[in-house]
Amino acid sequence: MKDYELRDELRESVNRIYDMELFSSLTELVQGENHVLQYLVQHRDDEINPSLLSDHLHVSRSRITAALTGLRKKGYVTMEMSEHDRRRMCVRLTVDGESLIKQKQQRIEGYFEALVVGLGEKNVKDFIRLIELSLSIMNAGSIEK
């Protein structure tokens, strides 16, 4: 098989993966409001403020403000004055917000569980190895831009 044919076949395979509901769910989880909720679940014992969210999620402060506004309107987070610094607002996850993000996480975990069961340990380890190798190659700048 010629290089360009192999490249095209690879691109088509990757496109089919991205068309799956699993990947749209995964993308949804790591972007926007859901990304904020996931961060809050993972750091529920920490005092989180909008600036910290912006820094840790690598999102502009205006996008964090918009996400938090939407999440507050939906009842998924609350904003209160910080106990340690009255000039800062503290973002807190509500029960509804935690429930929503945990449901989404469980759905995604179900997809990955099915993949692990279907592929088996050896193939999953090979798949992980190939993903890591691909990331290494792409991050090394060996791809023409």
Rank of each mutant, 00 (worst) to 15 (best):
3 D>F: 14
7 R>P: 02
10 L>Q: 07
14 V>G: 00
14 V>L: 13
14 V>C: 03
15 N>P: 05
16 R>Y: 09
17 I>K: 11
23 F>N: 11
23 F>A: 09
24 S>P: 04
25 S>N: 13
27 T>N: 15
27 T>V: 13
28 E>R: 15
29 L>G: 03
29 L>A: 06
32 G>N: 01
32 G>Q: 05
33 E>P: 02
38 Q>M: 09
39 Y>S: 03
39 Y>T: 07
40 L>D: 00
42 Q>P: 03
44 R>I: 15
45 D>T: 14
46 D>H: 15
46 D>F: 15
46 D>N: 13
46 D>S: 12
46 D>I: 04
48 I>H: 07
50 P>D: 02
53 L>P: 05
59 V>W: 01
60 S>C: 00
64 I>Q: 08
66 A>I: 03
67 A>E: 14
67 A>K: 04
67 A>Y: 07
68 L>A: 00
68 L>T: 01
70 G>F: 06
71 L>A: 01
72 R>M: 12
73 K>G: 05
73 K>D: 15
74 K>V: 02
77 V>N: 04
80 E>A: 08
82 S>Q: 03
83 E>Y: 06
84 H>G: 09
88 R>Y: 08
89 M>V: 06
89 M>L: 08
89 M>Q: 12
91 V>F: 05
91 V>R: 01
94 T>L: 00
95 V>L: 04
95 V>G: 02
96 D>A: 15
97 G>P: 00
97 G>Y: 00
99 S>M: 03
101 I>Y: 02
101 I>A: 00
105 Q>S: 10
108 I>T: 07
109 E>P: 00
111 Y>R: 02
112 F>C: 04
114 A>D: 11
115 L>S: 10
115 L>E: 07
120 G>F: 10
120 G>N: 11
121 E>P: 02
121 E>F: 11
122 K>P: 06
123 N>W: 05
123 N>C: 04
124 V>G: 10
124 V>P: 07
124 V>A: 11
126 D>K: 04
126 D>H: 04
129 R>N: 04
130 L>C: 05
130 L>H: 03
132 E>A: 11
133 L>P: 01
134 S>A: 15
135 L>R: 10
139 N>T: 09
140 A>I: 06
141 G>P: 05
144 E>V: 10
145 K>T: 08
